[in-house]
Amino acid sequence: MSKYRSSRINEEMRKEISNIIRNDVKDPRITAMVSVTKVDVTKDLSYAKVFVSLYGDNKSKEETLEALKSSAGFIRREVGHKIRLRNTPEILIELDDTIEHGMHIDELLRKIKEQK
């Protein structure tokens, strides 16, 4: 699969999964703000790693991540209806903490700057 096609599929999957989580998933455990940051689909289109960033306290993050993982089958079915692919990839949801990590590094740099 060409690099261009895989990046188009990744971006289209990211958009659709974000819309599905925002509008269609009705799980009451989803209390944190959810943002789909990245989707990586394997070359054979069998798996899609979905990276989500969650905003909220730790307890709501854990509950929301668990709810998203349990609704992965529903998300996969909805993606299959909206995006025409030969095989609909299996959804694997992972927590993306790069924003928090970046904020931590920014805080460390700010402290170093204040010490000088």
Rank of each mutant, 00 (worst) to 15 (best):
M13T: 15
M13G: 06
M13Q: 08
M13P: 00
M13K: 02
R14W: 03
R14F: 00
R14I: 01
R14M: 12
E16I: 03
E16K: 05
E16C: 03
E16N: 11
I17F: 01
I17E: 03
I17R: 05
S18L: 10
S18N: 11
S18T: 11
S18D: 14
N19Y: 14
N19G: 14
I21W: 02
I21N: 02
R22S: 14
N23W: 15
N23A: 09
N23R: 15
D24G: 01
V25E: 13
V25G: 03
V25K: 01
V25W: 07
V25S: 03
K26W: 04
K26P: 01
K26L: 05
K26N: 10
K26D: 08
P28R: 11
P28H: 06
P28V: 12
R29N: 11
R29A: 12
I30C: 08
I30A: 08
T31D: 13
T31H: 08
A32T: 15
A32G: 12
A32W: 08
A32D: 07
M33T: 13
V34A: 06
V34M: 12
S35T: 15
V36P: 00
T37A: 04
T37H: 11
T37D: 09
T37N: 13
K38E: 14
V39R: 08
V39P: 10
V39K: 09
D40L: 00
V41C: 15
V41W: 10
V41A: 14
V41N: 12
T42K: 05
K43G: 10
K43C: 01
D44G: 02
S46A: 14
S46C: 07
S46H: 15
Y47P: 04
Y47N: 12
Y47R: 12
Y47Q: 12
A48T: 07
K49P: 00
V50C: 06
V50A: 06
F51P: 04
F51W: 12
F51N: 04
V52G: 01
V52N: 08
V52D: 06
V52T: 08
S53D: 15
S53T: 13
L54Q: 02
L54K: 05
L54T: 01
Y55Q: 14
Y55G: 06
Y55H: 11
Y55D: 14
D57T: 12
D57A: 09
D57H: 07
N58A: 10
K59R: 06
K59Q: 13
S60N: 10
S60I: 03
K61Y: 06
E62V: 04
E62I: 05
E62L: 00
T64G: 05
L65P: 02
L65N: 05
E66P: 00
E66A: 07
A67P: 00
A67S: 03
L68P: 04
K69S: 08
K69Q: 14
K69A: 07
S70I: 03
S70M: 04
S70Y: 10
S71E: 02
S71F: 07
S71P: 01
G73T: 07
G73A: 07
G73F: 02
G73I: 05
G73R: 09
F74H: 14
F74C: 09
I75F: 03
I75N: 01
R76C: 12
R76Y: 05
R76N: 13
R77G: 09
R77N: 15
E78K: 13
E78H: 10
E78W: 01
V79A: 13
